[in-house]
Design a protein around this nucleic acid. Structure first.
Lengths: 126, 126
DNA sequence: CCGGATCCTTGTCGATACTG
DNA sequence: CAGTATCGACAAGGATCCGG
């Protein structure tokens, strides 16, 4: 699956600008970080993540990511109350973007934690 | 020069989260795109760029980027009314982030323009 | 418990007009 | 030219509530 410029009414045709309209907000890349690097799939995993996103914002961002084809939403087979949000091919490819951001961060901000040093799941859950 | 986690009061110590608090808003990466890929340096060059940022937002973002050490601000020697905003080493290193975003965009959004295909300066200016 | 929805307050955006 | 001032609209964020 692929997005199409003509169906999205972006504000400009610039590749960077279009991508930022999809992933360039305060929370979306953090959700994707959790999905890609920590393996989170459920609403409450994302909600309880480090930066404490509000549930209404989270629901909104998950919806948008599903609508854009970056995540899929499926009912969990073990627990029917739970939905799993999982990366599509498009979503997995964003790993390179997050990697680039992390590399810049590590080089230029003293004292930050690397993603690989963070436990898959925060202590207070599960 | 380098930023320091302990002096910035970021909301978490995650490398990605910290970086996003600096560059992860709707406009900042577009300003940096213009600086890195188009060689823009002045307020009006940035203001007249493709996506038409409002002048108050632009002023705010330029101030923040200067404060964080990503751009420098110096008075132009030819025209003393003009200031030049130029990339520091930290700023130049963000090219890799923008590149990663562009690569993702080109792979996943049909019909976007590549940065190298965009003229250095938009027609209506200068 | 789980995945939201709703309400409400505060903050930010963005357009326009204006100033030194 | 490089910003400020103002103001309405909208989004963020926090708290709480709710159906399954």
């Amino acid at each position: 699956m692929q997005l199409n410029f003509d169906k999205e009414n972006f504000r400009s045709r610039c590749s960077v600008s279009c991508a930022l309209e999809i992933i360039g907000d305060k929370w979306t890349l953090l959700i994707l970080r959790d999905s890609i690097y920590r393996g989170y799939t459920t609403f409450s995993q994302f909600r309880n993540s480090t930066e404490k996103i509000a549930s209404n914002i989270l629901a909104n961002r998950l919806d948008k990511l599903v609508a854009k084809g970056i995540l899929t939403k499926t009912q969990n087979e073990q627990n029917l109350l739970v939905f799993d949000y999982e990366l599509t091919k498009m979503g997995k490819e964003l790993k390179l973007v997050i990697e680039a951001i992390e590399n810049w961060s590590i080089s230029n901000i003293k004292g930050v934690n690397k993603l690989k040093d963070i436990p898959k799941f925060d202590k207070q859950r599960n």
